[in-house]
């Protein structure tokens, strides 16, 4: 008698989100199975890998992560194009240069840069503010307005500023990154608030990614639970794709800084782990790891 493995049937489905417009657009999410459980059914879209670019000349980056981009780090447009050429599905711009404690670039400068990138790059764009919740409101609002209808993925919207970020995103046709500090209950709370103003097809959850040895297991657990609650238990407030912005966390560890090959391992192991946990978008720094993760996603390794 032929053995037939028992299969779980789930009630929930992760929303499918489209980033970008027209030919440049990319779909993420849409899965009604647990991460990479392709034997269970339809994953809709495979996870995607973004490479990170910043507007601050890669200041503070570990040498090995800069190496493949060292001739273009002062031009984020060229840097982004290089990322795509080296295999990234899309580009993730971190507006580090807008940090009031750093270069303190103006919202208008940031908006002009993002606009140029949307025009010249052949991929959708993820844009993160510097993480200062007040400055981010000004910067993300300017970016959202300047790039109206480019359908960017913009954030982070956090507990302290989500109302203002949400308005900028909703009014200008973008998607939002809902970020909470590694806490499933706060994550749901922010989702519930955002869902009052924005359809779920325009929200991506960022539960915060920690690097291997620096709390990765917490991020893993939260991502895993997010997917379980959304797919297995059908909780509508948790049925959005998850972004794992992990490259920066890995490359700032002492282990990565002290020794390039160790940095490669740190980033790839963290990325593989969070992929298993259920991340739909991985943001990395090194193109070799981008290639490796794409092979893993495609089932080649």
């Amino acid at each position: 008698m032929e053995y037939k493995a028992p299969l779980e049937k789930y009630t929930g489905r992760i929303r499918e989100i489209t980033l970008g417009r027209g030919e440049k657009s990319l779909k993420i999410g849409g899965s009604s199975i647990l991460p990479l459980h392709h034997f269970e059914g339809n994953a809709a879209n495979r996870p995607v890998v973004a490479l990170e670019v910043d507007d601050n000349g890669a200041a503070g980056w570990a040498g090995s992560a800069v190496e493949p981009f060292k001739d273009v780090v002062n031009d984020p447009v060229k840097w982004g194009a290089r990322c795509l050429k080296l295999g990234a599905d899309l580009v993730c711009l971190h507006l580090e240069g807008t940090d009031p404690n750093g270069a303190n670039n103006t919202p208008a400068e940031a908006a002009a840069l993002v606009k140029r990138m949307t025009q010249e790059l052949d991929s959708p764009l993820i844009v993160y503010g510097c993480g200062d919740d007040k400055k981010d409101v000004e910067v993300l609002t300017a970016v959202a307005e300047a790039c109206q209808n480019s359908n960017l993925l913009l954030g982070p919207a956090v507990k302290e500023n989500y109302e203002a970020v949400l308005k900028a995103v909703a009014d200008n046709g973008h998607c939002i990154i809902a970020q909470t500090p590694i806490d499933i209950n706060l994550e749901k709370e922010l989702s519930v608030k955002l869902l009052k103003q924005l359809p779920p097809e325009r929200i991506v959850i960022d539960p915060l990614s920690s690097a291997l040895g620096y709390g990765m297991e917490y991020s893993f657990t939260i991502m895993e639970r997010t997917r379980q609650v959304g797919v297995v238990y059908g909780d509508a407030a948790m049925q959005m794709p998850v972004i794992a912005d992990l490259g920066r966390e890995c490359w700032k560890t002492n282990q990565a800084r002290s020794y390039g090959e160790q940095g490669m391992l740190w980033e790839s192991i963290t990325a593989l782990s969070l992929l298993l946990a259920g991340a739909d978008i991985l943001v990395l720094r090194h193109p070799d790891n981008c290639r490796l993760l794409k092979e893993a996603i495609e089932g080649k390794i």
Partner: peptide, 11 residues
């Protein structure tokens, strides 16, 4: 039966 959040009455 439902995941807790401070916004549990709002969803």
């Amino acid at each position: 039966d439902a995941l807790y959040s401070h916004a549990w009455l709002e969803s």
